[in-house]
Amino acid sequence: MGRPVTLFTGQWADLPLEELCRKAREFGYDGLELACWGDHFEVDKAISDDTYCSRKRELLEKYDLQLFAISNHLVGQAVCDNIDERHQAILPEYVWGDGNPAGVRERAIEEMKNTARAARKLNVKTVNGFTGSSIWHLIYDFPPTPASMIDAGYQLFADLWNPIMDVFGECGVKFGLEVHPGEIGFDIYSAERTLQAIDRREEFGFNFDPSHLIWQGIDPVEFIRYFPDRIYHVHMKDASVTLNGRSGILASHIRFGDPRRGWDFRSVGRGGVRFEEIIRALNAVKYNGPLSVEWEDSGMNRDQGAKEAADFCHNVDFQPSDVDFDAAFGD
């Protein structure tokens, strides 16, 4: 058997979880990766209600769906970010509060600690998410940025996330940063520096998503090879670079789905990611976890895309060989 193929529910949070469970089973998925928003998985309820997690499990079991991970990208973003009005739209009201940045950050930190505790109650070993970044706005080095400002950004990340990772360690749960523009780790070298900042502690690894690398010009396969022991979860998502001489990879402040953009997300198998090479690389590092579809194609019907993506992932996956091809030539 190949790896289980799951559907990340973040882009489906407008639907009640039970409706999505029914759809996911019809589409051909083996399980779900629950987002910590909508009614899919609510951290505060998981902490306060001792029956909440068991009821979520029962709902998935009703539709013969497995559960390997939950994801709290939105709250994680507020831990290290420079908080502004954008964050109000993505945070629970009890985390946003009065919007005072110091209070928002403090509540976001506590919510991420509670996410680890909730994962333990749910019997899930992986939480995926974002970290935010206080230095992302410095990505283009003008006015010239003193190295001390970048150093301070990584130190702030370590100061804020090490206490969160302490709770993850106590709970026996790992955190997978989705390496992504806007995060403290967004490519190979910044991801390496992120690990160095927290002394490469075992609780912290990566939710590998090739779509965020390919448009930056980074080979996703090289990311797997660089971090063979830190691939804690895998998102299957595609992207296409569509540079036409007018647009660039910075996207011109044009929203996703607009054909003028220099790149955009695509349904799995319809972009530029070489998924067969990714499977071979995952086999080489002995990754046996799920392949979780994160569906974000603004130009395609999502039901059609999600079903097609499930079929694609089942078909592209394969087990490594257990024999050398030339073994039969010997004695």
Rank of each mutant, 00 (worst) to 15 (best):
D50L: 12
L60M: 14
N100F: 14
A46S: 08
V79T: 03
Y29C: 00
D50W: 06
C80H: 02
L20G: 04
G38H: 11
H40S: 08
V75A: 01
A69F: 00
Y52D: 12
C80Y: 04
H73W: 13
T51D: 14
Y94T: 03
W37Q: 09
E61G: 13
K56V: 13
Q77G: 04
K23P: 02
Q66L: 14
L60Y: 07
F68M: 08
G31S: 13
L59T: 10
W37N: 14
H40E: 11
D98H: 06
I70W: 01
D84S: 00
T51G: 11
N72S: 15
P92V: 10
G38C: 10
K23Y: 13
F41P: 02
E85C: 05
E26F: 10
K23V: 04
N100V: 15
Y94R: 01
A89Q: 11
R22W: 08
E61P: 03
F27W: 15
A89E: 13
W96T: 05
H40R: 08
E85G: 04
P92R: 04
A69Y: 00
I70M: 04
E58Q: 15
Y63Q: 14
E42P: 00
G99D: 12
L60A: 13
K23G: 13
K56N: 08
G31N: 09
G99Q: 08
F27C: 05
N72K: 00
A24K: 05
D50G: 12
Y94D: 12
K23C: 09
V95L: 03
D84C: 00
V75E: 00
V79E: 01
I47L: 05
C36Y: 01
R25K: 15
L59V: 14
E33R: 03
A89H: 07
S48T: 15
S71C: 14
C53E: 12
F27G: 01
E33Q: 14
G76Q: 05
V75R: 00
K23R: 15
C21N: 12
Y94E: 08
L60C: 10
W37I: 11
L67V: 06
V75C: 01
N100Y: 15
Y94A: 02
S48R: 11
S71D: 10
R55T: 14
